[in-house]
Design a protein around this nucleic acid. Structure first.
Lengths: 121, 121
DNA sequence: CGGTATCCTATTAGATACTG
DNA sequence: CAGTATCTAATAGGATACCG
Protein backbone atom coordinates (compact mmCIF):
# COMPACT_ATOMS: atom_id res chain seq x y z
CA UNK A 1 0.00 0.00 0.00
CA UNK A 2 1.29 3.40 -0.95
CA UNK A 3 0.62 5.34 2.23
CA UNK A 4 1.09 4.14 5.77
CA UNK A 5 -1.76 6.29 7.00
CA UNK A 6 -3.85 3.44 5.73
CA UNK A 7 -2.56 1.37 8.59
CA UNK A 8 -4.22 1.80 11.94
CA UNK A 9 -0.95 1.98 13.84
CA UNK A 10 0.59 4.81 11.82
CA UNK A 11 1.41 7.81 14.02
CA UNK A 12 0.38 10.28 11.34
CA UNK A 13 -3.17 8.94 11.56
CA UNK A 14 -3.72 10.71 14.85
CA UNK A 15 -2.28 13.94 13.50
CA UNK A 16 -4.57 13.63 10.52
CA UNK A 17 -7.53 13.04 12.78
CA UNK A 18 -6.71 16.19 14.75
CA UNK A 19 -6.50 18.12 11.49
CA UNK A 20 -9.58 16.78 9.77
CA UNK A 21 -11.75 16.12 12.78
CA UNK A 22 -14.82 18.23 13.25
CA UNK A 23 -13.38 20.81 15.63
CA UNK A 24 -9.80 20.52 14.40
CA UNK A 25 -10.73 21.54 10.88
CA UNK A 26 -12.91 24.41 12.08
CA UNK A 27 -10.23 25.63 14.47
CA UNK A 28 -7.48 25.53 11.85
CA UNK A 29 -9.84 27.32 9.51
CA UNK A 30 -10.50 30.04 12.06
CA UNK A 31 -6.80 30.45 12.87
CA UNK A 32 -6.07 30.63 9.17
CA UNK A 33 -7.48 34.15 9.37
CA UNK A 34 -5.14 35.38 12.09
CA UNK A 35 -4.36 35.35 15.80
CA UNK A 36 -7.16 35.01 18.31
CA UNK A 37 -7.79 34.70 22.02
CA UNK A 38 -9.61 31.75 23.51
CA UNK A 39 -13.03 33.35 23.67
CA UNK A 40 -12.63 34.99 20.28
CA UNK A 41 -12.01 31.54 18.85
CA UNK A 42 -15.00 30.19 20.67
CA UNK A 43 -17.18 32.74 18.97
CA UNK A 44 -15.61 32.09 15.55
CA UNK A 45 -15.90 28.33 15.75
CA UNK A 46 -19.64 28.03 15.63
CA UNK A 47 -21.06 25.71 18.27
CA UNK A 48 -17.85 24.59 19.96
CA UNK A 49 -17.97 24.09 23.72
CA UNK A 50 -15.22 25.31 26.04
CA UNK A 51 -14.24 21.73 26.64
CA UNK A 52 -13.90 20.75 23.00
CA UNK A 53 -12.09 23.94 22.01
CA UNK A 54 -9.65 23.48 24.86
CA UNK A 55 -9.09 19.85 23.95
CA UNK A 56 -8.69 20.66 20.26
CA UNK A 57 -6.22 23.46 20.89
CA UNK A 58 -4.13 21.26 23.16
CA UNK A 59 -3.97 18.51 20.54
CA UNK A 60 -2.98 20.96 17.79
CA UNK A 61 -0.46 22.65 20.03
CA UNK A 62 1.07 19.31 20.94
CA UNK A 63 1.33 18.40 17.26
CA UNK A 64 3.16 21.67 16.66
CA UNK A 65 0.48 23.19 14.46
CA UNK A 66 -0.69 25.87 16.86
CA UNK A 67 1.30 28.21 19.04
CA UNK A 68 -0.04 29.36 22.39
CA UNK A 69 1.17 32.64 23.87
CA UNK A 70 0.12 33.25 27.44
CA UNK A 71 0.78 36.62 29.02
CA UNK A 72 1.07 36.39 32.81
CA UNK A 73 -1.17 39.38 33.35
CA UNK A 74 -4.36 39.73 35.31
CA UNK A 75 -6.79 39.12 33.78
CA UNK A 76 -4.83 36.58 31.71
CA UNK A 77 -4.47 37.02 27.98
CA UNK A 78 -3.74 34.03 25.78
CA UNK A 79 -3.23 34.26 22.04
CA UNK A 80 -3.40 31.39 19.60
CA UNK A 81 -1.92 31.34 16.12
CA UNK A 82 -0.78 28.85 13.54
CA UNK A 83 2.84 27.81 13.40
CA UNK A 84 4.51 27.75 9.96
CA UNK A 85 3.79 24.02 9.76
CA UNK A 86 0.24 24.61 10.88
CA UNK A 87 -0.19 27.21 8.18
CA UNK A 88 1.03 24.84 5.49
CA UNK A 89 -1.32 22.14 6.66
CA UNK A 90 -4.24 24.55 7.01
CA UNK A 91 -3.56 25.72 3.46
CA UNK A 92 -3.97 22.23 2.06
CA UNK A 93 -6.96 21.58 4.24
CA UNK A 94 -8.61 24.75 2.99
CA UNK A 95 -7.95 23.74 -0.59
CA UNK A 96 -9.91 20.57 0.04
CA UNK A 97 -12.67 22.35 1.93
CA UNK A 98 -13.11 25.05 -0.70
CA UNK A 99 -13.23 22.45 -3.44
CA UNK A 100 -15.90 20.41 -1.68
CA UNK A 101 -17.89 23.58 -1.08
CA UNK A 102 -17.60 24.64 -4.72
CA UNK A 103 -18.94 21.30 -5.87
CA UNK A 104 -21.70 21.06 -3.32
CA UNK A 105 -24.33 21.59 -6.05
CA UNK A 106 -23.10 18.54 -7.84
CA UNK A 107 -23.13 16.59 -4.58
CA UNK A 108 -26.66 17.71 -3.81
CA UNK A 109 -27.87 16.55 -7.20
CA UNK A 110 -26.18 13.19 -6.76
CA UNK A 111 -27.92 12.82 -3.42
CA UNK A 112 -31.31 13.59 -4.94
CA UNK A 113 -30.71 11.04 -7.65
CA UNK A 114 -29.64 8.45 -5.11
CA UNK A 115 -32.59 9.11 -2.84
CA UNK A 116 -35.03 8.99 -5.74
CA UNK A 117 -33.76 5.57 -6.75
CA UNK A 118 -33.41 4.05 -3.32
CA UNK A 119 -36.42 5.60 -1.64
CA UNK A 120 -34.88 8.20 0.66
CA UNK A 121 -33.81 5.99 3.54
CA UNK B 1 -16.62 34.29 8.09
CA UNK B 2 -15.07 33.23 4.83
CA UNK B 3 -16.40 29.68 4.48
CA UNK B 4 -19.81 28.44 5.35
CA UNK B 5 -18.44 25.03 6.27
CA UNK B 6 -17.65 26.72 9.53
CA UNK B 7 -21.34 26.82 10.24
CA UNK B 8 -22.88 23.71 11.67
CA UNK B 9 -25.85 23.78 9.33
CA UNK B 10 -23.91 23.94 6.08
CA UNK B 11 -24.71 20.96 3.82
CA UNK B 12 -21.11 20.66 2.67
CA UNK B 13 -20.11 19.85 6.25
CA UNK B 14 -21.58 16.41 5.99
CA UNK B 15 -19.89 15.79 2.66
CA UNK B 16 -16.65 16.92 4.20
CA UNK B 17 -17.15 14.60 7.12
CA UNK B 18 -17.69 11.68 4.78
CA UNK B 19 -14.51 12.60 2.96
CA UNK B 20 -12.26 13.27 5.93
CA UNK B 21 -13.76 10.84 8.40
CA UNK B 22 -11.66 7.91 9.46
CA UNK B 23 -13.08 5.35 7.04
CA UNK B 24 -14.05 7.84 4.35
CA UNK B 25 -10.48 9.01 3.91
CA UNK B 26 -9.08 5.49 3.93
CA UNK B 27 -11.69 4.29 1.45
CA UNK B 28 -11.11 7.18 -0.94
CA UNK B 29 -7.40 6.52 -0.61
CA UNK B 30 -7.85 2.87 -1.47
CA UNK B 31 -10.11 3.63 -4.43
CA UNK B 32 -7.57 6.18 -5.61
CA UNK B 33 -5.55 3.17 -6.73
CA UNK B 34 -8.24 1.62 -8.91
CA UNK B 35 -11.46 -0.37 -8.97
CA UNK B 36 -12.14 -2.93 -6.27
CA UNK B 37 -14.76 -5.34 -5.07
CA UNK B 38 -16.25 -5.16 -1.62
CA UNK B 39 -14.01 -7.70 0.02
CA UNK B 40 -10.95 -6.46 -1.82
CA UNK B 41 -11.63 -3.05 -0.34
CA UNK B 42 -12.11 -4.60 3.07
CA UNK B 43 -8.65 -6.07 2.87
CA UNK B 44 -7.11 -2.84 1.60
CA UNK B 45 -8.70 -0.65 4.23
CA UNK B 46 -6.94 -2.01 7.26
CA UNK B 47 -9.23 -2.72 10.17
CA UNK B 48 -12.54 -1.69 8.68
CA UNK B 49 -15.55 -3.80 9.61
CA UNK B 50 -18.13 -4.93 7.07
CA UNK B 51 -20.60 -2.61 8.64
CA UNK B 52 -18.44 0.50 8.50
CA UNK B 53 -17.23 -0.17 4.98
CA UNK B 54 -20.78 -0.66 3.80
CA UNK B 55 -21.91 2.49 5.54
CA UNK B 56 -18.98 4.49 4.22
CA UNK B 57 -19.47 3.30 0.66
CA UNK B 58 -23.16 4.16 0.77
CA UNK B 59 -22.44 7.67 2.00
CA UNK B 60 -19.78 8.25 -0.66
CA UNK B 61 -22.00 6.79 -3.35
CA UNK B 62 -24.86 9.01 -2.28
CA UNK B 63 -22.59 12.06 -2.42
CA UNK B 64 -21.64 11.09 -5.96
CA UNK B 65 -17.99 10.39 -5.18
CA UNK B 66 -18.10 6.64 -5.65
CA UNK B 67 -19.74 4.57 -8.34
CA UNK B 68 -21.12 1.14 -7.56
CA UNK B 69 -21.45 -1.44 -10.34
CA UNK B 70 -23.39 -4.55 -9.40
CA UNK B 71 -23.51 -7.46 -11.79
CA UNK B 72 -26.63 -9.57 -11.31
CA UNK B 73 -24.67 -12.80 -11.38
CA UNK B 74 -24.47 -15.58 -8.86
CA UNK B 75 -22.36 -15.25 -6.85
CA UNK B 76 -22.79 -11.47 -7.05
CA UNK B 77 -19.97 -9.26 -8.18
CA UNK B 78 -19.92 -5.60 -7.19
CA UNK B 79 -17.23 -3.17 -8.26
CA UNK B 80 -16.51 0.18 -6.67
CA UNK B 81 -14.60 3.03 -8.25
CA UNK B 82 -14.26 6.77 -7.90
CA UNK B 83 -16.38 9.07 -10.04
CA UNK B 84 -14.61 12.00 -11.75
CA UNK B 85 -15.71 14.23 -8.86
CA UNK B 86 -14.56 11.64 -6.36
CA UNK B 87 -11.19 11.50 -8.05
CA UNK B 88 -10.77 15.26 -7.85
CA UNK B 89 -11.65 15.26 -4.19
CA UNK B 90 -9.46 12.25 -3.43
CA UNK B 91 -6.60 14.03 -5.17
CA UNK B 92 -6.82 16.99 -2.83
CA UNK B 93 -7.30 14.76 0.16
CA UNK B 94 -4.19 12.80 -0.77
CA UNK B 95 -2.21 16.03 -1.07
CA UNK B 96 -3.12 16.80 2.51
CA UNK B 97 -2.44 13.27 3.73
CA UNK B 98 0.92 13.03 2.01
CA UNK B 99 1.95 16.38 3.40
CA UNK B 100 1.06 15.42 6.95
CA UNK B 101 2.92 12.15 6.53
CA UNK B 102 5.99 13.89 5.15
CA UNK B 103 6.13 16.19 8.14
CA UNK B 104 5.40 13.54 10.74
CA UNK B 105 8.99 13.80 12.04
CA UNK B 106 8.45 17.44 12.80
CA UNK B 107 5.16 16.62 14.51
CA UNK B 108 6.77 13.88 16.58
CA UNK B 109 9.45 16.26 17.78
CA UNK B 110 6.87 18.88 18.69
CA UNK B 111 5.02 16.26 20.69
CA UNK B 112 8.17 15.28 22.58
CA UNK B 113 8.86 18.89 23.39
CA UNK B 114 5.30 19.41 24.57
CA UNK B 115 5.29 16.28 26.70
CA UNK B 116 8.66 17.14 28.23
CA UNK B 117 7.36 20.55 29.32
CA UNK B 118 3.92 19.51 30.46
CA UNK B 119 4.72 16.12 31.96
CA UNK B 120 3.18 13.73 29.43
CA UNK B 121 -0.47 13.97 30.39
C1' DC C 1 -10.40 35.93 31.00
C1' DG C 2 -9.04 31.32 30.27
C1' DG C 3 -9.54 27.58 31.39
C1' DT C 4 -10.21 22.46 34.34
C1' DA C 5 -13.16 18.83 36.55
C1' DT C 6 -17.16 16.20 36.73
C1' DC C 7 -21.05 14.01 35.24
C1' DC C 8 -24.11 12.40 31.97
C1' DT C 9 -26.03 11.49 27.25
C1' DA C 10 -25.77 10.59 22.31
C1' DT C 11 -23.40 8.91 18.63
C1' DT C 12 -20.10 5.69 16.57
C1' DA C 13 -17.82 1.72 16.08
C1' DG C 14 -16.97 -3.24 16.65
C1' DA C 15 -18.47 -8.25 17.09
C1' DT C 16 -21.44 -11.57 15.84
C1' DA C 17 -24.98 -13.78 13.43
C1' DC C 18 -27.61 -14.19 9.59
C1' DT C 19 -29.51 -13.71 4.38
C1' DG C 20 -30.05 -13.58 -0.89
C1' DC D 1 -19.66 -12.87 -2.45
C1' DA D 2 -21.88 -8.92 -0.71
C1' DG D 3 -23.96 -7.40 2.27
C1' DT D 4 -27.98 -6.42 6.58
C1' DA D 5 -29.56 -6.75 11.48
C1' DT D 6 -28.78 -6.62 16.15
C1' DC D 7 -26.54 -5.90 20.30
C1' DT D 8 -22.93 -4.06 23.05
C1' DA D 9 -18.69 -1.27 24.08
C1' DA D 10 -16.11 2.74 23.48
C1' DT D 11 -15.82 7.45 22.62
C1' DA D 12 -17.21 12.09 21.61
C1' DG D 13 -19.64 15.67 23.07
C1' DG D 14 -22.55 18.88 26.00
C1' DA D 15 -24.00 21.12 30.57
C1' DT D 16 -22.67 22.72 34.63
C1' DA D 17 -19.80 24.16 38.29
C1' DC D 18 -15.79 25.81 39.78
C1' DC D 19 -10.65 27.86 40.05
C1' DG D 20 -6.32 30.95 39.29
Amino acid sequence: MAYDVFSRQCPSRSTLEHVTGRWGALTLGALHDGTFRFNELRRRVDGVSEKMLSQTLHALERDGLVRRDAQPTNPPRVDYQLTPLGREIAERLMTLIRFVEDRQDEVGKAQERYDATRGAL
